[in-house]
């Protein structure tokens, strides 16, 4: 394959709307988890448990969707919504464990997060086998189909890229913009950032550090759960063991790359999604896909190393708060 041909193939891929549609789709779980991470870490709680939260969300999404259809007699179109509710709820419950360990018991946040990741991996794998009798994966469950938005989805190029997606992909865009607003333009956002910067200062003006930190942790649980639901109810229609495959950690990186902001988290997730999308599509070229996949990480290192100004973490991140 000569260079001119490779160039032509790459150009075609870059011109093809489906590249960008895939980018948006693939970036969704990363973006949701990363935004959750941004909320959590802005209040001062390191959240490396995103991976575990997503896994719990993915499992719960499949589980609830399965039961909604097969045991509770709900229809094929309602069941995945029950799955989403289940994923968000279980994600929050699971992250509450992180809250108890990191906020209440003042344990080392990284250790708590690591423990939760291991626990989530084991528990979801075990429950899959215990409840469905097969190792590795659940049966197929009711899942979401793309919902093209009338008229908008007909716009050339932009239509398929932006307006022909499954529900959680749309939700991620709204949450990125809404999250940015909440964190930077509302009193509760101000308090969350204050608690992550200088908890004692917040405490002395009557802001409850514990409550705010729990809130941050729970938001990461809800969004991480939603991210998991995207994997098991949109990307595919089942849960399989360890199906997150490190996405929680990539989300964590996207959060840092996005400077602990919802919008930044979303944009950097798009970058990772773009690379993944290229990887899928460049398999036709005789180029190692790892090479393409490597690019955003190389870029991240370059950027974090100073090309884009320093990423400054919240000042009190990782430090348990005690009133005395």
């Amino acid at each position: 394959m000569d260079l001119g041909h490779v160039f032509q193939v790459v150009l075609d891929i870059l011109r093809d709307p489906s590249t960008y549609q895939a980018m948006l789709r693939i970036s969704t779980p990363l973006a949701l988890a990363a935004i959750g991470g941004a909320f959590c870490e802005r209040t001062g709680v390191v959240n490396i448990a995103l991976e575990g939260i997503m896994l719990v969300g993915a499992f719960s999404g499949a589980l609830f969707s399965y039961y909604a259809l097969n045991s509770w007699g709900l229809s094929e179109s309602v069941a995945p919504w029950i799955g989403v509710l289940g994923a968000v709820t279980m994600g929050m419950l699971f992250s509450a464990l992180h809250g108890v360990g990191s906020v209440h018991l003042r344990a080392d946040q990284v250790v708590v997060g690591a423990a939760l990741n291991i626990f989530a991996l084991g528990a979801t794998g075990f429950l899959t086998q215990a409840l469905f009798g097969v190792a590795g994966a659940t049966p197929r469950v009711a899942s979401f189909d793309p919902i093209p938005i009338p008229l908008l989805s007909k716009i050339p190029f932009l239509g398929p890229v932006l307006f022909d997606h499954t529900p959680i992909v749309y939700m991620a865009i709204v949450i990125a913009i809404g999250g940015q607003y909440v964190l930077f333009r509302t009193p509760i956002g101000l308090r969350m950032r204050a608690v992550g910067e200088h908890p004692k200062a917040a405490d002395t003006v009557g802001v409850s550090v514990y409550r705010i930190r729990y809130l941050g942790v729970l938001i990461s649980g809800a969004l991480g759960g939603l991210a998991g639901a995207n994997l098991s109810l949109e990307s595919v229609s089942q849960f399989s063991e360890n199906m997150t495959r490190g996405r929680g950690f990539i989300a964590l990186a996207a959060n840092i790359f996005g400077k602990w902001t919802p919008l930044g988290s979303w944009l950097s997730s798009l970058l990772f999604g773009f690379a993944e999308s290229l990887k899928l599509r460049t398999q036709v070229i005789d180029l190692p896909p790892e090479f393409i996949l490597m690019l955003p990480y190389v870029l991240t290192i370059v950027v974090l190393a100073g090309a884009m100004g320093r990423a400054v973490p919240p000042n009190a991140i990782g430090k348990p708060y005690s009133k005395q």
Binding site: L190, A194, E197, H198, K200, A201, A202, T204, V312, N315
Partner: peptide, 11 residues
């Protein structure tokens, strides 16, 4: 008890 990265009015 001020947050260095906040503006005075925010504090």
């Amino acid at each position: 008890m001020l947050i260095p990265r906040f503006t005075i009015v925010e504090n």
